[in-house]
């Protein structure tokens, strides 16, 4: 599904990714973890072509993404902070994205799932953070693409919406999709992901299931396993 070879990226003097290799197969939920500044968002933005890597190749669904934009038809992306044009109404934004990406009928279902009907005629600038995140989720999930990338999907969501989101992600997985998630909420990651990819200093430090990680670090639970990686490498 995704194949990354020898990826390098530098922002000024700050080397963010240094020779990252990663292969992600078809189907399943993958969590990309790592401390702040380890390059998670950069990695995802490289996948989306928003950040241009200095070196290395990325292919998504068997297609080299360099200088191409069509492959993004097959990716649903949830950006980290829902930055929307503030003077658009929710309804207009949804129509606009549909106009740009193609027809879909899933938006109505998702709007009722997240109970967004009362907000459709409000301007995006006047919405709360959590509601914006729900709009963000609707925009992401309405296209039914084989690859779903979620950057901090839980931020600002209330408990009910969080449960709905988890169900939604599981349903996507059941359809055979590949879901890539970054999150700092360890309980969420533990509950939902099949495999984790741990980034450290611009490289993959660990890739495998949560139980493998627990064995490797000799820790009884997931949160401590992650913490032990961080203390071992930064002590």
């Amino acid at each position: 599904m995704i194949e990354i070879k020898n990826l390098h990226k530098k922002f000024g003097k700050n080397q963010v990714l240094s020779g990252l290799d990663l292969e992600i197969g078809e189907g399943g939920i993958f969590a990309v973890l790592g401390p702040n500044g380890s390059g998670k968002t950069t990695l995802i933005k490289c996948l989306l072509g928003m950040v241009i890597p200095d070196k290395g190749t990325i292919s998504v669904l068997g297609e080299n993404i360099k200088n191409s934009s069509d492959y993004r038809h097959r990716i649903d992306y949830l950006p980290q902070i829902a930055n929307f044009p503030t003077n658009l109404k929710v309804k207009e934004l949804i129509t606009m994205i549909k106009d740009l990406r193609g027809k879909t009928d899933l938006d109505k279902e998702l709007i009722s799932l997240f109970k967004l009907e009362p907000f459709l005629d409000k301007k995006l600038g006047n919405l709360s953070g959590g509601t914006k995140q729900k709009v963000n989720l609707v925009l992401t999930f309405m296209f039914d693409s084989p690859l779903v990338i979620l950057d901090e999907p839980t931020s600002g969501l209330d408990p009910i919406s969080l449960i709905r989101l988890k169900k939604l992600i599981q349903a996507e997985k059941a359809k055979g999709k590949t879901v890539l998630i970054t999150s700092h909420i360890m309980s969420f990651v533990e509950e939902i992901s099949d495999e984790i990819v741990f980034l450290l200093e611009g490289k993959i430090y660990f890739k495998g299931s949560i139980s493998e990680l627990k064995n490797k670090t000799n820790q009884p639970d997931f949160e401590h396993a992650i913490a032990s990686i961080l203390t071992d490498n930064h002590a």
């Binding site: 928003m50 934009s69 069509d70 950006p79 930055n83 044009p85 994205i97 740009l100 990406r101």
Partner: peptide, 16 residues
Amino acid sequence: NSKEFTELLLAQPLKR
């Protein structure tokens, strides 16, 4: 001012 709009568009299947 339209930075947010631009970022939203960049993630869509559109040429830069």
